[in-house]
């Protein structure tokens, strides 16, 4: 029975052990060490560019743009091809029609067109 109040007292004392605590301070010359670290951390233009390019958002956006350009080019090529196909069909038909014209139109025919 004696144990319980003793434990309670220790618990209470422990909980109160931080009362009146003073603020801890870093070692002297903190600012000097900090500026050393800042200079060490300073990046060159290339490093900054590299870290910007390697950011996931930039990578994903870049891939999206490339895919978009690709899709646009493929669709554009398809339209051009189908237009060219139409022109090719017409040309082919013209050639075929000409092949089946039995009349031979030479300069002699035009010059003597009114003659019986």
């Amino acid at each position: 029975m004696k144990m319980r109040p003793d434990i309670d007292r220790k618990v209470q004392e422990t909980l109160e052990s931080l009362d009146g605590i003073q603020r801890a301070e870093p070692q002297p010359f903190f600012y000097t060490r900090l500026t050393g670290r800042l200079q060490h951390n300073e990046k060159t233009v290339w490093e900054t560019m590299g870290s910007f390019i390697s950011r996931p958002v930039v990578v994903i956006a870049g891939l999206f743009v490339i895919l978009l350009v690709n899709a646009f080019m493929v669709l554009r090529q398809d339209t051009t091809t189908s237009n060219l196909g139409f022109v090719a069909d017409q040309t082919e038909q013209l050639v075929t029609d000409n092949e089946y014209v039995l009349a031979t139109n030479s300069s002699f025919d035009y010059e003597n067109i009114d003659r019986p």
Binding site: K10, E13, T14, L15, S17, L18, G20, I21, Q22, R23, A24, E25
Partner: peptide, 18 residues
């Protein structure tokens, strides 16, 4: 913790652990 008064050091160490 360096800011704890000397006679409370042991108890404060126990408290920080907890």
């Amino acid at each position: 913790h360096p800011g704890v008064v000397l006679d409370k050091k042991e108890k404060a160490a126990t408290l920080f652990k907890t």
